[in-house]
């Protein structure tokens, strides 16, 4: 071994020593489970029995032939789409409002952001109480006008609406903070130049603010999709996926198949399905992001 290689070897050993624990944990609990999930999806197993029965693709065939599965896919789409679109709209409005030179706006930004940090299970309980159709805040409020509150526990539409509203209330502040940072980054001379050219308020919004914010908006949309897609605590506490599967989404179904019904095979299939969807979304995001940077 010559003289040059000794420091190089030492540097390499330092690198390995410094990263080994981090990388090992990430491999053991992030990458290995993906392989394990694929493996589980090919077997019939109840998590307890010492024997797993190999069934090949049968779990997949059964899952994709099941009407409930497609209802769950549809629910996931409806939930994600409505949550994300409402969240982005609210976040955008909040960001515009809280970028105005108003007294107390810093404090308000804090208030708006706070729900993002709170426990989803706790928030779900608070909204359960608010939406309680006998004694909740909404019922009490509507009572003043002699209107009956819709039932969020038994009506499929209102059950979905209830969890969407809760999600939007919890997530909008996160998007707002990011969009506020984005608004601060816009070059002010653009607005001045546009004002000289006679652009009105609406024109400035459409032709300067929104295009300049595009990367941030994309970020908020993508994190919103990933967040909504993964939300579990709010659904578990508020609706338990009901009534009659009306709010059963992929991640909730994964929990149900795995830890209520103890069906490892279908749970493995769902693991693979969710991962593939997430992967496609991430790749799409990277491609759109790259195109934005290229322009």
């Amino acid at each position: 071994m010559n003289r040059r290689q000794i420091p190089l070897l030492r540097e390499s050993l330092t690198l390995v020593g410094f990263v080994i624990l981090n990388i090992t944990l990430i491999c053991a609990f992030t990458f290995y489970p993906l392989i394990q999930g694929i493996q589980l999806s090919l077997y019939q197993w109840d998590f307890i029995s010492p024997f797993k029965i190999f069934v090949g693709a049968r779990n997949y065939v059964r899952m994709f032939g099941d009407r409930t599965f497609w209802q769950i896919m549809r629910n996931t789409f409806v939930f994600t789409f409505s949550t994300v679109s409402l969240t982005v709209l609210c976040a955008f409005g909040l960001a515009l409002l809280l970028s105005l030179p108003l007294r107390g706006r810093e404090w308000t930004r804090g208030v708006v952001f706070l729900p993002t940090l709170l426990s989803g299970a706790a928030i779900a309980l608070v909204f359960n109480y608010i939406l309680d159709d006998r004694y909740g805040m909404l019922t009490q409020f509507l009572h003043i006008f002699n209107i009956k509150s819709p039932s969020f526990y038994t009506d499929p539409f209102w059950a979905m609406a209830g969890i969407v509203v809760t999600m939007v209330w919890k997530q909008a502040g996160y998007g707002a903070v990011i969009l506020i940072a984005g608004l601060q980054g816009i070059d002010h001379t653009l607005y001045e130049a546009a004002a000289i050219d006679g652009a009105g308020r609406r024109a400035r919004l459409w032709y300067i603010t929104i295009p300049s914010l595009a990367p941030m908006l994309l970020f908020v949309v993508v994190t919103g999709i990933l967040g909504a897609f993964q939300s579990f605590d709010i659904i578990k506490v508020m609706t338990n996926g009901g009534p009659i599967n009306a709010t059963n989404v992929l991640v909730y179904n994964l929990y149900e198949r795995g830890f209520v019904n103890f069906e490892a095979g279908p749970a493995g299939v769902l693991t693979v399905v969710i991962f593939v969807i997430m992967l496609v979304l991430t790749i799409l995001q990277l491609q759109v992001g790259a195109r934005n940077n290229a322009v």
Partner: peptide
């Protein structure tokens, strides 16, 4: 490896991780 791990959402891996832990 770190960047790739960013793309795997935590909720996806619960079933296999439960099997490992038990």
């Amino acid at each position: 490896l770190i960047v790739a791990a960013l793309m795997v959402p935590g909720q996806v891996v619960i079933v296999p991780n439960y099997v490992t832990m038990s």
